[in-house]
Design a binder for these strands. Structure first.
Lengths: 340, 340
DNA sequence: ATGAAAGCGCTAACAC
DNA sequence: GTGTTAGCGCTTTCAT
């Protein structure tokens, strides 16, 4: 207020007429301090507008109260929702969340891990990325930085949270099978990462239960643009016999599929059923609304934070844990029986 | 690799057989160092896997290389896209971006500003939030922390970036007027914040140009849930004479409007035209696709970062700047002439 | 060109 | 209960 320069604990100590050691103890209420000086120091601090310097504290205490989080793309709503919730929970515990975008490139991921290490993050939450295994992680591990994996295996001695993608795809496929569909096209983003692999496994499993074999020509799994997906959808519909249902994994896949179907004048669900994994505004508000198998993003973020906090809290046992997030089917208007 | 404990510059100095002062100079190539020792030190550092401690550097150099950014909600796609782009640009310059969610509450915003101050961020990017004026900002300012406002006025001596919301709404309204609409309903999120106010001004201005007066019963501006917006839309359509076009400001408003219209069996654009400000997946992929007046999120993020970097770079003149981001109309299928 | 030493702001160990 | 001091890891004078 009065003086423009930033106040330090030295200023507070001087103003309260005590040593800086006493000032520190008073402010943190640690060790032996008389109640009188606590009050005197606190008042002085308030009057000066003193705020302890987090950097100096970090250096001294060897804890930055910052958690790093790596995702492929923060602007992907599925990540954004999770980040939001995780940040909220961590904030409550006094931690800040620093997010890095890997662009799904292991090179960038490596650079970010290095950076986070340099910045001395207290913990690291790692989402899926191109390569599953990064040796840098071991380094972190050895430096007692706990890691929590999100839809990603990250070492046996670390915590992990996994959305049950396999079951999600399994339930989705079963739902379509129950409606009488036999030729179910599958559009997935990428089969390399854990989520993609799991989902294809769930799809195959549901099919196998009914004695159907997955047909390779009905499965399209690449990372690709929306326009490309649209033409994929069209090409799938030109197969003979054509698929009667589409199972789309991910927003982009759904968007492309809807676009392709629409360009071709195909009606949902009369001509073809559509079911998507992962709920979005688009699925909710499209006409007709799209049925989905989804999960709770907020819960995911909250649990990620919880797992991290548990590892960080020295008073707890702190053993690594593994959590599976369940999924649920939301029926809307996009699925019917074939030829109905 | 060999030793599990984190390496410091002391270790590097010892390994290279020099003092820590020399090691520092060699690693940073600053001051007078012989090329020979530079090589020796660099090699030692590499061999040990040494990474300078960013916290210690921050304390010493009084710069954290962290920029703070405050938004109401990181999971709002409009913010997420901007954050993503800003982070990318800042990263290139060696800065990390720390994002805080204010939930549109000035109390939380104040707490976050305090927190960022404690963490000694080098700069602060402030998005719109409930209250426009926070005295805490002056404090920051006095501590030489540059602030960049995003759709928000933040002091005359600070930089700011503003999407041209007024013009966006103006162009949108004109587009509808040109199609022959006279009763244009306006659904806006909140008129308290700068973006909302500006948009309503643009709407009014376009109307006035044609000699129409804005009718209060056609304007609905509150922060509200999607379901609520849907019923708002219905109530608007029950007016006599009913509006022939909807101008929605923001995703949520569009979603609610579409839902309401659909519930009522109203067809777009035959029964009513819809135009939205701000492009989204929903607008793009809805059937029919929704025309929009929009702007480039990536550009916004990039320019925000650029403004900040310019203020941070001591070699530049560093005078505060003000940037207006233009908008453009994208015609799609949701607008027609009334009664056509 | 290099080494020694001070100090960024803070906390904790030790003395009194 | 309080003051003094060391030190977190680094950069930067200031001598040499």
């Amino acid at each position: 207020m009065t003086n423009r320069s930033r106040k330090t604990i030295k200023d507070v100590a001087a103003a309260a007429g005590v040593s800086i050691g006493t000032a520190s103890r008073a402010l943190n209420r640690r060790g032996r301090v008389s109640e009188a000086t606590v009050i005197r120091v606190t008042n002085a601090a308030k009057k000066l507008g003193y705020q302890p310097d987090a950097i100096a504290q970090s250096l001294r205490l060897k804890s930055t109260m910052v958690i790093g989080m790596l995702v492929t793309d923060l602007s992907n709503p599925f990540f954004a929702g999770v980040i939001r919730a995780a940040e909220k929970r961590l904030q409550q515990a006094g931690y800040a969340l620093l997010v890095g975008n890997t662009d799904n490139e292991s090179e960038r991921e490596g650079a970010l891990i290095d950076l986070f290490r340099r910045r001395r993050v207290d913990g690291l939450i790692m989402g899926p990325c191109a390569a599953e295994n990064v040796p840098l992680l071991e380094d972190l591990d050895q430096n007692d930085v706990p890691i929590v994996g999100y839809d990603r295996d990250v070492g046996s001695d670390q915590s992990g949270l996994h959305v049950d993608h396999r079951r999600a795809a399994y339930e989705a496929t079963r739902h379509l099978l129950n409606l009488g569909h036999e030729r179910i096209a599958l559009l997935s983003s990428s089969s390399k990462l854990s989520p993609g692999r799991e989902r294809i496994a769930g799809y195959t499993e549901a099919l196998a239960e009914r004695g159907f074999e997955p047909r390779d020509d009905l499965i399209r799994a690449h990372k690709s643009s929306m326009d490309f997906v649209a033409s994929e959808a069209l090409s799938l519909m030109s197969l003979r016999p054509a698929p009667t249902a589409f199972l789309t994994l991910g927003t982009r896949m759904l968007a492309g599929t809807l676009q392709g179907l629409r360009q071709n004048g195909l009606r949902i669900p009369q001509d073809v059923s559509v079911l998507t994994v992962g709920d979005t505004d688009l699925a909710r508000l499209h006409a007709p609304s799209i049925s989905t198998v989804t999960w709770d993003l907020e819960l995911v973020g909250q649990m990620l934070a919880e797992l991290m906090l548990r590892r960080l809290d020295k008073s707890e046992d702190g053993a690594p844990q593994r959590i599976i997030i369940p999924t649920q089917l939301i029926e809307r208007e996009s699925c019917g029986s074939p030829g109905a």
